[in-house]
Each structure stands twice: as structure tokens, then as C-alpha cells.
Simulated assay, not measured.
Amino acid sequence: MSLVFLSACINGSGTQTHPSSTSQPTTLTSGIPLGEWNADGIIGENEYAHKLYLAGGKLVIYWRNDDTYLYMALMGQTTGWIAIGFEPSSAMKDADMVFGWVQDDQTVVIDAYSTGTYGPHPPDEKLGGNSDIVEYAGSEENGYTVIEFRRKLNTGDQYDKVFMPGQKIKFIFAMADADDFTTKHNIARGSGELTLDG
């Protein structure tokens, strides 16, 4: 059994459980030094400092940061796409979005930007920006998809939000059962907030 599946909260009897959504993130390390971060689609022990359960546990967001980069993993109960959008101004408008899925053993990650209140959200390159996901990987196993990615806190791209250590970041999230990010979210969607380490 892989660390990806184990990281979905296994209780002592071996039954998978998902705590209800909470706006309070769980700190994973509790003073234990973080392990090495790898873009391999596997959520390793001590790889991330924080995690947050959303949509009744259907989506778990993991993150860590240093002074230069944000490192993140999204683990969703789907074989379709999962996405996060940072700092929307209203509903989806102006959200700096990352979509990811695994299809035919290939991981696809798209750096996108929502131009309207309810989309569309074209890739940054179609708007004159750049894809600023420095490194990424994914996996799909036992009905779960994991997408890991790394990006600079400040990419210099007008279609990416600028983050600072210690910042509180509002986000939206969504999931669908299809490997096509133009398909409407039909599993879960919502919003939350996370805080970067200072």
C-alpha cells in the first residue's frame, strides 16, 4: 500500500476515515523537521508542514513554503481533475488557478487564470502570461488523484498572485470526475484559507 493511500487518514482498525471539513489546518510536523520535498505524486511522511480537509474529506490540501517557493499537494477522491484557485476577487474572478489530473499514466498540470466571475479560466499562456509551475507530478490509485507542484511565491507573472511568508491566502477549490478541465466541477467545490509559514 502506497504512502498516497496511507496519507488519507487510516485509523487503527484499518478503516479509512475522513474528518469533516475544518477551517483550522492541521500542523503535521509538530516540531519534527520537514523531510525532503519531491515532485513524485506521493505524499511522504513529513514532506509537508500543514494539511487541510475540505468537502467532508473528499479533498485534502497539503502545503509548505520557504522564502522562495510554495510546495503543495492536492489529494482528491476522484479519478478526474482537481483544482485550487488563489485569491479570487469575487466567486472565481481573478483567481490564480492550478488544475491537475492523471490520464494514461501522464500527469497534466495547468497554470490558469479566471477572467470572469464564473470563468472561463484559460491557461496563463493564452492570456499572454507564462506557465509558472516549476515542477510537478501526480498519481492515481484506489480512486484518489494526487497532484504535487512547486511554484515561486513571486513568479513575476501578472496572472499569478504574489505570496509572502506568513501571509493568509484565501482560496477556492473544485473537483470533477473527468480528465478535462473545461468540464464543470461535479464532485465538490468550495473555499477556504491557509497561512504560509513566516
Rank of each mutant, 00 (worst) to 15 (best):
F86G: 05
I42E: 04
P25H: 13
V134C: 13
N38R: 08
G31I: 06
T22C: 11
Y71E: 09
F5S: 10
G12S: 15
G143W: 00
G198I: 13
D94S: 12
T195R: 10
Q106C: 07
F171V: 07
T79H: 04
L34I: 12
Q77A: 09
L6C: 10
T29S: 15
M175Y: 04
G166K: 09
E141K: 05
A112P: 01
G44H: 08
E140T: 11
G76L: 01
I169A: 11
I61L: 10
K168I: 11
K51H: 11
Y159K: 03
S13A: 14
P25A: 13
A91K: 11
D157I: 08
T195A: 14
D132H: 08
T195D: 03
S21I: 12
A49S: 13
V162M: 12
G57A: 04
H121L: 02
G44R: 08
D177T: 15
Q77G: 04
M75E: 09
A55F: 04
S131I: 10
I110K: 13
V98F: 03
I32D: 15
A188T: 12
L127G: 10
S30I: 06
Q106L: 08
G192M: 03
T22P: 06
M75H: 12
A188I: 05
Y69D: 09
F5D: 10
R151C: 00
Y144K: 01
A174W: 05
Y48A: 05
S89P: 11
S30C: 10
T26S: 09
D66V: 09
D157S: 05
R64K: 12
Q77R: 10
K170H: 14
I133V: 15
